[in-house]
Design a protein around this nucleic acid. Sequence first.
DNA 1: AATGAATGAGATTTCATTCAT
DNA 2: TATGAATGAAATCTCATTCAT
Lengths: 186, 186, 186, 186
Amino acid sequence: MAREGLDGVNTNTIARAARVGVGTFYQHFEDKFALHRAIVQRALEGLQNSLAQAHQEADDRPLPDQVRAGVVALVGFAQAQPDLFRTTFGRSAAAARLNSKGRTAGLGLSARPLERRLRALLEEGELDPAIEPGIAARAFMDMQVRCVVHWIEDPVHEDPDALIRTITRLHPALVGQPLGGDVGLG
Amino acid sequence: MAREGLDGVNTNTIARAARVGVGTFYQHFEDKFALHRAIVQRALEGLQNSLAQAHQEADDRPLPDQVRAGVVALVGFAQAQPDLFRTTFGRSAAAARLNSKGRTAGLGLSARPLERRLRALLEEGELDPAIEPGIAARAFMDMQVRCVVHWIEDPVHEDPDALIRTITRLHPALVGQPLGGDVGLG
Amino acid sequence: MAREGLDGVNTNTIARAARVGVGTFYQHFEDKFALHRAIVQRALEGLQNSLAQAHQEADDRPLPDQVRAGVVALVGFAQAQPDLFRTTFGRSAAAARLNSKGRTAGLGLSARPLERRLRALLEEGELDPAIEPGIAARAFMDMQVRCVVHWIEDPVHEDPDALIRTITRLHPALVGQPLGGDVGLG
Amino acid sequence: MAREGLDGVNTNTIARAARVGVGTFYQHFEDKFALHRAIVQRALEGLQNSLAQAHQEADDRPLPDQVRAGVVALVGFAQAQPDLFRTTFGRSAAAARLNSKGRTAGLGLSARPLERRLRALLEEGELDPAIEPGIAARAFMDMQVRCVVHWIEDPVHEDPDALIRTITRLHPALVGQPLGGDVGLG
DNA sequence: AATGAATGAGATTTCATTCAT
DNA sequence: TATGAATGAAATCTCATTCAT
């Protein structure tokens, strides 16, 4: 029942596409938006899990590897379920957020964990003091996702290595690393 | 006639707000979306100008200053015309792009100049080889804009210094600079 | 199974409230309206019985007492089962009659017995010749019911004595009685 | 534009019947119910006027004549605009009132003037003390209207004289008049 | 007999757009 | 050129009823 779920599509079409009657649709979801929320929520939960697991597995490795692991997990998720990823983070998501008045809270990947991480690094003197953790955390989480969305939607769809390397290298915590390090080698 | 122009508003209301008849509106714009395009285009032109000028003025200064000048220009623009900025880059922009089927080309700040710049740096060995210019350019342009949108929409709306410092420090061309440099000092 | 049965309520709710499945409901009643008809019919039968009994018991008393007995019975019935009374005679009844195309016959308290009674009195010269028995009978039966409905729905819900006295005094057969008689004394 | 306005009819049909588009309908009336309210209001105003005029013209005549004048005016109105009368007071009116949640206030012929009148008579000792003015006023206004509705809807549609005579004779203020008076002679 | 998920016709309402004045 | 009443396709949602289990 988890459709490819593009919003900007009418309920009749959604129902027809799901091979059920319109009424059936409304028996499962209060709203057109409830469907979107459900899909997104599912996607986010899966994604948070992937990320958490990736971070845990890389826990005792050097920082660049940890960062890289997270990016790899994200790209992997997007590659495995491109439609779901697009729906969750792409344009229609923005449109949907416009309509689901008020309940937007927490719709999106939380930047809090990264913010905490950065704050810790900052106190240890390992983060550039020019960087404000709150802003940088949101900036990176958002950037990461947008890059992947773009990559997915790009018809050329090249190999993901450059993508992963680039995103990783732009992580706030790695900004001060010397040029040409082994950051992206994996 | 350049309204605060939020889409998700009906044409009659737009016309009423512009103190003209609905019919008059359709004599100036082919479409509801034509208005949006016009507004966005105007905004983008103004913005491109600001940025070009900023870059030109900082042309002979060190790289960090050049980057910073661009960010400052962007934030200044957003601060001066918050509604216009939101309309151009905020959520409703994404929604609008959904509807204006096909004609989306170039709706948004072009990442090409930055891409060229990065490519040049890369060839001179001054950019981390892990970074792919095309991806990084888009990533930064997007990130920049999103951070500012978030800042504008944030009711707390703190002082822009931390914002400018943080964004600047995340610029792809400054990756690799040692920690605690004078990047953000202006 | 005799619900508070207001129409303007959907079948699913009715079934849920009756602690049965929707399907079960349709095994007992052909229609949504069949339920209403059943409820009303039950109410009317009960009411007709009460009235008949009241009239019978007061058969050998003077006319005013007979009339009064009928009114008392009606008010008593309404007081004992207000919801049922409202459903049977209130607004939703009118609405229901709109929908149950054609089968409306006899939905309501019959005015025939009273009409016969009045006709008899007319022939005996004991009814004002200005009064047409058919019209007056319907008028009184209707008025009676409406007054009681109004009384029930009135949140103030005062004591029923004035109600009974007034309705009684307006009975077509008592219209010519001299002022200040003992009509309402019981 | 004042349609025959039966509710229990869908908006599309209403619009089609009025020879306009659906949208046009909603430009004139906020609601389906707004139309009904408008029609009813118009009808009530016209009716109140007729009644007021009738009463005024009969002001210096004996009480029975005054009463009769009012009834005649009502029946005349119903005869002149039967559809409007049905819509305003018939079943669909009750149904409509069900839906127009809350705003029902004053939808119907006011009983207040008659109540005041009766109260005055009561104090002068010219009204039977068994009669409570508030109840009797509402009872009569309602009865009057219901009788006329019934008469209109009756396919046989006999001459209105008996109707007028009967209703008049049942007026609370004439209760107590000796039988066979000249009440109904006009 | 009991159930309740599935159904889809139909009702209400919105809104971008046109066109006669 | 300006206007805004008129338009109707399209979207959302409800609910009486059916039918497979």
